[in-house]
Every structure is written in structure tokens, then in C-alpha cells.
Simulated assay, not measured.
Amino acid sequence: MDALLDIPAAGAGRLGRQAVPPRQPRPRLRCPGLAEMVTWAALQAAMAGVYLLERPRLMIRVSGVVHGFVFLAHALVTALVAVDQRPRMPCGMCGCCY
């Protein structure tokens, strides 16, 4: 019967909505940051393989494209977190204060 009358739960705010806790930026930056680290290491390993071991350049092309995509995704997530958190300007530009 309560569901039919839409009675707010105890402790609920206005219109029966719970207060939304502030978002934490570190969990949102962790996955793109780790992916950036792994793809950068793969790119460095491919470069070492090409220049030191004389392997085909295809390794650099593939790892470079993957790393470029992940880098742009990481930059986008950092920008979205900066907009959400509204930090001071230098911290928002480099993403180092999260």
C-alpha cells in the first residue's frame, strides 16, 4: 500500500530522494590511468623490439594506435573529472590534484 501512495522513506530528502554522496575522482581515473600505463609500456617494448632486435615496424603501428586511443580516452576522463570537481585552474589542467 505504501508503494501505491509513494510515501517517502524515513530520512529521505525532498520528494523522497536520498542525498547523493559526492563523487570520488580516484576510482574514475584509476582504470584509464592503468590502461595508459600498460599501453605506454607496450609501445616502449615495441620500439625496443624494432630498433634493437630489428623486428617489423607493424608492432609500433599497432601499439601506437592503441596507445593513442587510450591516451585520448584518459585525457577525456581527466577533463570530465575536472569539470565535475571544479578545482583550481592549474590542477584541472594537468589532472595532478586528484
Rank of each mutant, 00 (worst) to 15 (best):
G16T: 01
G16N: 03
R17I: 11
R17V: 11
Q18L: 09
Q18H: 07
A19Q: 14
A19T: 15
A19S: 13
V20N: 07
V20F: 02
P21L: 08
P21F: 02
P22C: 05
P22G: 05
R23G: 09
R23C: 06
Q24M: 13
Q24Y: 08
P25N: 00
P25M: 03
P25A: 06
R26S: 06
R26L: 13
R26G: 04
P27T: 00
P27M: 04
P27D: 01
P27Q: 02
P27L: 02
P27E: 01
R28Y: 06
R28G: 01
R28Q: 07
R28N: 00
L29C: 11
L29G: 07
L29F: 06
L29T: 05
R30T: 10
R30C: 04
C31D: 14
C31A: 15
C31P: 12
P32Y: 00
P32D: 05
P32S: 02
G33Q: 12
G33N: 13
L34A: 11
A35N: 02
E36T: 12
E36C: 10
E36D: 06
E36N: 13
M37G: 14
M37Y: 14
T39C: 08
T39A: 05
T39F: 11
T39L: 05
T39Y: 04
T39P: 10
W40F: 13
W40L: 15
W40R: 15
A41H: 06
A41P: 00
A41W: 09
A42T: 02
A42P: 00
A42S: 12
A42H: 00
L43N: 08
L43G: 12
Q44G: 06
A45D: 09
A45G: 07
A45M: 09
A45Y: 11
A46S: 12
A46L: 01
A46H: 03
A46T: 04
A46Q: 03
M47C: 08
A48R: 10
A48S: 07
A48E: 05
G49Q: 03
G49K: 06
G49C: 05
V50Y: 08
V50D: 02
V50W: 03
V50I: 10
V50C: 01
Y51N: 07
Y51F: 15
Y51T: 04
Y51G: 03
